[in-house]
Write a protein that binds this DNA or RNA. Structure first.
Lengths: 147, 147
DNA sequence: TTCTTAATGCAATTAAGTTGCAAAAATAAG
DNA sequence: CTTATTTTTGCAACTTAATTGCATTAAGAA
């Protein structure tokens, strides 16, 4: 069964198909605001940046929980940089059928932005018998704006 | 000038050349124990795993500071998994002249070990004008032992 | 409109990592 | 070998990020 979504981004980008017995995610104002924010943002955002932007609209804890749901629904992905910075970004390149989050993320050491380098998919091949579920590729250095 | 090191692993693997005005790192018992532990370990270790292993030999804070020094000296490298797990691994493949930490790390979701896949270097090419200083490539899934 | 269940806010808690400072240890100098 | 210098350590306190439990509120189905 497909979730009905008032939020346009949900309708067009993320026709999430729920598995039997999976509890249905509801589309709340907080969820809509946060997904809109991430969709419109050029760079990945941290929890505190989102909190700051929403400016008291909802509780910090709610933001954590909404982000979890959006990840669960494959609408956003999570990025962890080498110094433990956690950021979230909308999945611009994902279709209903295939989600590919295995692109490189660039973390600028100067302005500390994290950007999805969507068109660069790293090539790698693991030894036999490793089952891959998820990848996290971050490269840190200096971005074009800060050079 | 070269640091004198009583620890055999330092002598053979990591002839650290200090830069002018850089403060000299001393070889203490804590540092020796921690580097030995990491060198002998098959998998990357977290701060708390090291703490547990040393079993009260030194303070938590000392472990953090020793790990910082070992990273500074390019003797170990730091790995951050997608769920924020921070682990440290000795640089087995590094030579005096070239350090390459840009191999893939595999994080097993079952047994939560982190292993360096030393012989797999991912290929990627960033757009112009990005200056790369550091990479963090982690792949999570199920390792051969847990399949 | 009512009912069921998910989402939220709040307070409290856990965990990871950092900082300042006095005491101890490692190395250099005499 | 002894003394002087500077790094390292331990301890306590602190900061920040994230999680949990629970009562209340709200979304969506009936």
């Amino acid at each position: 069964m497909q979730l009905s979504c008032k939020n346009k981004f949900y309708i067009c980008k993320c026709n999430f198909v729920a598995i039997k017995n999976m509890k249905k995610s509801r589309n709340t104002l907080a969820k809509t605001k946060i997904s809109d924010l991430l969709t419109q943002s050029k760079n990945a955002l941290s929890h505190s940046e989102i909190h700051e932007f929403l400016d008291g609209f909802c509780d910090r804890v709610t933001i954590y929980r909404v982000l979890d749901r959006l990840i669960e629904e494959d609408f956003i992905h999570k990025i962890v940089t080498i110094d433990g910075l956690v950021k979230y970004a909308a999945c611009h390149d994902c279709s209903t059928v295939k989600h590919h989050h295995n692109h490189i993320h660039f973390n600028c050491e100067q302005c500390s932005t994290v950007t999805c380098i969507e068109d660069v998919e790293p090539l790698f091949k693991l030894p036999e018998r490793y089952k891959v579920n998820n990848v996290n590729f971050t490269v840190s250095g200096i971005c074009p704006n800060c050079i």
